[in-house]
Write a protein that binds this DNA or RNA. Sequence first.
RNA 1: GCCCCUGUAGCUCAACGGACAGAGCACCUGCCUUCUAAGCAGUAGGUUGUGGGUUCGAAUCCCGCCAGGGGCGCCA
Length: 590
Amino acid sequence: MFQTEQQTIEARIKAFCTANGIPLSVLEWKPIPFSGEWGMSTSFFAVAAAEARLGKKIDVAQRAQEIAEQVQSQVSGVPGLSHAEAVKGYLNLFFDTQEYTRRVVETVLDQKDRFGSGPATGQRVMIEFSHPNTHKAFHVGHLRGTILGDAICRILEFAGYDVVRANYPGDMGLHVIKWLWGYLKFHNGEEPSADITKWMGEIYAEASKRLEEDPDLETEVRSVYARWDKREPQIVALWERTREWSLEGFRQMYAALDVRFDVYYFNSQEEKSGKEIVEELVRRGIATDERSQGGAVIVKIDEVLGLAKEQFHTAVVLRSDGTALYATEDLALALHKFSDYPDLAKSLYLVDVRQSLHFTQIFKILEIAGHEQARKSGHISYELVTLPGNVVMSSREGTVVLLEDLLREATTRARAEAHKKNPSLTEAQLESVAKAVGLGALKYPMLARENTKMVTFDWKTALDFNGQASPYIQYAHVRCNSILRKAGVDITNLPPSAFDHSLEPAEVELIDWLSRFPSEVQRAAAEYKPLAIANIAYNTAKAFAGFYDACPVVQASPEIRAARLRMVAAVKQTLANSLALLGITAPEVM
RNA sequence: GCCCCUGUAGCUCAACGGACAGAGCACCUGCCUUCUAAGCAGUAGGUUGUGGGUUCGAAUCCCGCCAGGGGCGCCA
């Protein structure tokens, strides 16, 4: 926001250093740690260290301070800056408070829901995420990938990318065969209940349990697989019908979560071309067909690459009985995506960390085979959601917290809380607040965490609406709205404010967080890291809470009131924008 | 045996190689005739697992070690 001033200053500093033989290379600017007012700062440690390396006998810290002091005199009188100071080797340039505040607030109010967005990059990126398995339950473990993927898409779009949201349900595999067997044997003819996914999941869990109790039943399951492999019409029809049940359940779930997809791929549809790729790999000597010796079709990647140390290990790309497995289908899908979208700059897969090796193998095999698309493909991994005691959620073992249950619990809880806190809410308002707050409370903990860190799910934390959580941020947004409503003025009719009252520290800190939002969006996009947004959203809300407490708005004197109203409107907008990037609704009341 | 991730306050987690390592929860003390207390202010809590190295400067980068988790030819 002070690019022009920054350039002026850089030019002056560089000129000074050149004239005085100081070997300055690059200047890096960073925000000054908050100290009641703010600005940007740079340091001279690197220059001083460079001098020391040239043979001068100097104390680096001392010399840095010396340079900072000399440079300080060069930067006075730049419009927009109030003063400069040299301290501990840093040169701190303080912005003219009024001017800076005005620029930040007016920028936000001018750009509205685009504040923080980046210019169009012209690049198209595909993110594949969620990939639920049909015929299975959808539990909290799946929620992280879904929520994370959705947020990453929102962030990338906002940052200027053209995003393709892809889903890849696992609609065929051993789990489906097992389900079909269980259905035919124990539930034949039954129709799904209202909670489709839950009902499907129960049948799957039952089938797993029966198989465990009586392993002899495996032969029956295998025969179902054989019937599928022969495409026996009866089995295919049953599969199609039950698969559709699951997909309908998923559609309902995604609607409830406010997550959407642009394109669906299904592993059942990649089977054929996957097998063709494998055949080609065998023909070209990349894959080894060990089926004649009772083995599978494999790619000894390390050997093919001539690596002495094992790194990529060996990948199985086709079962010994010739049926496809996920690796077979993933080889095909990776290419399929590029034939659908030839201009993809990147094709990313958001899949949990246990699949890391799998994806490095897939991409490496395609690369060996000469498919350049592989270089544009990548895996974004994230850690699992576990239950207390490090218990991994498993549909098979029934150690799951179902999404349906969690959603219901969270909204019920949020509704009760909202009614208690604000009895004046109408039924319709209660309904939407419950949805916004309940859903936000679920999403935020999944996003406010490093992707590589495990999330331990427990009900107490999940339903705790206080502190660093989504409701706190939503509440800040509501309070902004409340002030604007109470003031009874249309903010768009207020002229830009001069902000020439002496700003309170709380106001300065608040403005500071607003100004950082655009760069955090870029960082979050570059690192696929919604955490950056979750953090700044919280920090902005926290700064606002401090402001709310320290700075009256509605009852302030006319000039201050007008200025603060615009500030509050800017905060409200920024909070709404950041929550939107997390896929969380910003309510007007709660 | 090979590879990946994690280790920061009692607990859960933050911290683009920079200034004094910060929040929340829990605990304790205050604050609702004032814009919604889902809030605010304050107290307390640290050898950033450990030993080296690089650097003017390391929680952050490199190497070793310890601890926990995960992945390594026909599950997805």
